[in-house]
């Protein structure tokens, strides 16, 4: 098996604890060297608002500027570093759909632990979907199926992609989503919203606003990177 990121051969070692555990063997898709370049965020000390990597669990300066009373917080799994930037370059922009498998397991485990009543993913615009052929978040969740079951996409207006905007512009972006769900599907539910990267938080907080206005009990964001 070749590493999906550097193409080097991965040596799978059958360790004794694993042999004794009787767990099924899941083949690693990236080598140890590449995997170490990603920086996992320690959740106990991360910012309780946005999930940013910190040494103490205190609201970070960015989060202090958001209204605090909303029942929303974000969980981020990795720091957006050079390795992560290179990953998204290859996965999203070059369209190498195989790379979904790099974070498939991590993402699904995290989602499982959050244990929400309703899971929604941030959609991509129809024209992006047409040229890219996939939604990068769905890729991590559904192993090649178009949309994960139980998920509903939100329609999003066209415009300048988020990645082309500076922070000030992003924060001023108007609500880009609408809900394609009946009110009773949302009311009183603990909703998990998944996106790829938390940068300013504007996108995912728009989705959260909409859900909270529609009666959701709480909204938790889950992003691969922060």
């Amino acid at each position: 098996m070749q590493c999906l990121l550097c193409q080097r051969l991965i040596q799978s070692k059958f360790s004794l604890p694993w042999l004794l555990s009787w767990r099924p063997f899941t083949r690693p898709v990236v080598c140890a060297v590449c995997w170490q370049r990603f920086k996992r965020i320690e959740r106990r000390t991360a910012c309780p608002g946005c999930g940013r990597d910190q040494t103490v669990p205190r609201l970070c300066p960015d989060c202090q500027r958001w209204p605090a009373e909303r029942p929303f917080h974000n969980v981020a799994l990795f720091t957006y570093n050079d390795a992560m930037r290179a990953y998204f370059q290859q996965y999203k922009f070059h369209g190498d759909y195989r790379l979904r498998r790099v974070f498939e397991g991590t993402m699904q485990t995290a989602l499982h632990q959050l244990n929400g009543d309703l899971v929604l993913i941030i959609p991509v615009t129809p024209s992006t979907l047409l040229s890219r052929g996939f939604n990068q978040v769905s890729g991590w969740l559904s192993d090649g199926l178009n949309q994960p079951r139980g998920l509903q996409t939100l329609a999003r207006e066209k415009g300048v992609p988020q990645s082309k905007k500076v922070r000030q512009d992003r924060l001023r972006t108007p609500q880009p989503f609408m809900l394609a769900l009946a009110a009773e599907q949302i009311q009183g539910k603990r909703v998990v919203v998944i996106d790829d990267i938390y940068t300013t938080g504007r996108t995912i907080r728009h989705a959260a606003d909409l859900l909270l206005e529609s009666g959701a009990k709480s909204v938790t964001g889950l992003t691969l990177a922060r």
Binding site: D96, Y97, G133, F134, G144, N146
Partner: peptide, 11 residues
């Protein structure tokens, strides 16, 4: 090589 919806790409 698969993409969703029975589409394929060359890796």
């Amino acid at each position: 090589a698969q993409l969703p919806n029975n589409q394929y790409y060359c890796y």
